[in-house]
Simulated assay, not measured.
Amino acid sequence: MTTKPNKGPSDQIDEINPKYQWNSEKPSVLVFDVNETLINFESMNALFERIYGDKHVMREWLGHLIMYSMTLTLSGLYVDYYSLGQGLLQMIGSIKGVNIRPEDHEEIKTAMMTMPTHSDVVEGLKHLKKLGYRMVTLTNSPPNPNGKSPLEQAGLAEYFERQFSIEAVRSYKPSQGVYHMVAQELDVQPSSCCMVAAHVWDTIGAQSAGFSAALITRPGNALLPTPGLPQPNFVAKDLIHLAKILPSVKGV
């Protein structure tokens, strides 16, 4: 029996039916997700290993963080991302019978604000900037009134025209209003914007609001090949790869 080789991102994009890519307009603005797309959540593995004795609990916590942020928005409620992350640390501790100390709550908040970049990000952003795109960020994380944002902590702020937070509308992604806010603030049509994210729930949300989308297949993330759902216009393994497959906007 012949085993088919595993396919990478560049192979997967060839299989996407164009009718499911929805907005196919050439973008001029790249809107970057921050958490996991630019900065590395895996850097918190050691913290979860210390607290729970298992670094894989980080992924469990992150899944809850995404699910409950969406739950709040669907319920018409809001608390900031860091407070939600702290509460979920306690909830998982209760489930697993692990005592969560006050200092653990503070450590998880600090960790969420100070994660390092993925190794490809700086080089990739430099290449993307040379292609002529306007570049901004859109994150679930709130602004930090007492210091640097996670993006600034990671040394990436200089590459972006603006940093947007969902806190301005008090709704989490993938609420359509979050993406419309960015387009309105930049005074461009949604179709001019391309969401760059490591999560399909983010690319689907952006495309439902009129954006195009680029999926970065960070570890633990992949396409959702369900007919009828919008599929990314671009699929790349990292930002360096993305810069190779995006068209240049110079001269547009």
Rank of each mutant, 00 (worst) to 15 (best):
Y68K: 12
S69K: 07
W22S: 09
K26Y: 02
V57L: 10
M58I: 11
L30G: 00
M67R: 15
F48A: 03
L62Y: 04
H64Q: 15
L72Y: 04
L38M: 09
M58H: 02
L77Y: 10
W61M: 08
N23E: 10
T37V: 08
P27C: 07
N45Q: 11
T73M: 05
Y68V: 10
M70A: 08
M70Q: 12
W61S: 08
F41R: 04
F32M: 00
L74V: 15
L62H: 05
R50H: 05
D33M: 04
N35R: 02
S69D: 13
Y52C: 01
Y68T: 06
Y20G: 10
L77G: 14
F48R: 04
T37A: 10
F32I: 02
G76F: 02
L72S: 00
I39C: 11
S28H: 05
V34M: 09
F48V: 10
R59E: 10
R59Y: 08
L47Y: 02
L62W: 01
G76M: 09
R59I: 07
E42W: 06
T71N: 13
I16Y: 01
D33K: 04
H56N: 14
E49G: 11
M70I: 14
W61C: 09
G53K: 00
K19Y: 12
L62G: 03
G53A: 08
L74H: 13
F41S: 13
S69F: 08
L62S: 07
Q12C: 11
I16N: 07
K55W: 04
Q12I: 03
V57T: 08
Q21G: 11
Q21K: 14
D33N: 01
S43Y: 00
I16V: 02
A46I: 10
K19I: 12
S43W: 02
T37R: 08
V29I: 06
E25Q: 10
V29R: 04
Y52F: 11
M70K: 12
L74G: 11
L77W: 04
L77D: 15
F48T: 00
L62V: 08
S69G: 15
S24L: 13
E42A: 14
E36C: 09
M58K: 04
S28M: 12
M67N: 14
